[in-house]
Design a protein around this nucleic acid. Structure first.
Lengths: 202, 202
DNA sequence: GTTTCTCAATCAAGTGATTGATTGATGACA
DNA sequence: TGTCATCAATCAATCACTTGATTGAGAAAC
């Protein structure tokens, strides 16, 4: 038998801030940063506006909290599958699998992160939190291409840094889904592999 | 000798709306859509807020005006250099040259357009204006790859639609400039060519 | 008792938009 | 040429909220 009188509306600071960040992420995905309102967030969480300010003092701090929340999730996902000892091509394929998983598991991250990247142009504090994610992601591919050239997976004349930019650009463009005019993810990934793998007659 | 008494503050509706659109574009580039204020636009143009509403009745109509303004500029630029009679690879190179020119000539378009693409998720009216631009751009590359396969410029196993997505993704990612971790435009373009050109021993 | 958390009411400034008056430009007419 | 009517364009003042944030009191947890 549940005791209604023990139901509390309180959450620890950390839990509450997590709830706030998640609600804000959802709302940014729905309405963009331009439509983000502190009252809407409070309502979505189920708290009073003053409670929201108790936990997160300004709107600016709120956006930073969202950025940190996304950074932490992104980093948790990046550690899921170890890469040690695999060839360049194998690692490339694992990165593609990871990408597919991210798109499936956290679709809202896909929408919110670019909004924060855009905001980073004007807000160095946000940039300091999220831009390293992009750098890290790109560095992963650069390392994979360097390895793949050395192990014979990829063409010798591949420029690892430029190739990394091509791959991250193509994948992030795909994840944005602005337009229905796009190749399927399978076709895109297959073409990305063909673009760099070493020709058998080389 | 100039006659001061003939100086007027009036502009035709069309000229005024053009001024308003350009000011709004500049402000979106500076502050994002979330920081766009009708009074700021009016001030930037040098008119009263009521005058702005006289010409453009709502903020929503204003964003649509910006979208149309960008569409028109984009389309004007797309017609600059004819492509007829050139090989797939030559056309690809012309597209890259066009891209370079756009980035140089209208840097603010580079920032504003993606903001409108994002807004298009939530605002079908804006999407109807700007998303066809992306489709058109992508279709250009698809056609180029199709042609280039037929004329022997590109590998036979290139999937034109997927390759177009890769190129447009890589270029648009580059133009965004979120991070300093990127290849130079020259290196990116060179790698994009290597990704698709036909190997001499094929 | 102390600390943390929550709330309703409120504040001050900002925001998109409106109102009513005025000005400027143009064409018709005497 | 001068006058008048008309319409387009402009403005200051104002409206009706909206917005991020604050205040002071009370509740909950330890």
């Amino acid at each position: 038998m549940s005791d209604i009188s023990t139901i509390s509306r309180r959450e620890s600071g950390e839990d509450r801030r997590r709830s706030i960040a998640l609600a804000a992420r959802t709302l940014i995905a729905e309405k963009g940063l331009e439509g983000l309102r502190t009252r809407d967030i409070a309502q979505r969480v189920g708290i009073n506006i003053a409670t929201l300010h108790y936990h997160v003092p300004t709107k600016e701090a709120l956006v930073a909290l969202v950025a940190e929340s996304l950074r932490d999730d992104f980093q948790a996902q990046a550690q899921r599958h170890p890469r040690t000892g695999k060839s360049g091509l194998e690692q490339l394929r694992l990165e593609f699998a990871d990408f597919r998983e991210t798109v499936t598991d956290t679709p809202e991250m896909i929408v919110v992160l670019p909004n924060l990247f855009e905001r980073a142009r004007r807000d160095p504090a946000i940039g300091a939190i999220v831009l390293p994610l992009y750098d890290y992601w790109r560095q992963q591919f650069t390392d994979i291409f360097t390895l793949g050239i050395a192990d014979g997976s990829f063409r010798r004349n591949v420029d690892p840094a430029a190739a990394a930019c091509i791959v991250t650009g193509a994948l992030s463009d795909h994840w944005r889904g602005w337009t229905d005019f796009r190749a399927s993810l399978d076709a895109l990934i297959a073409e990305l592999e063909r673009a760099f793998i070493r020709n058998l007659t080389d």
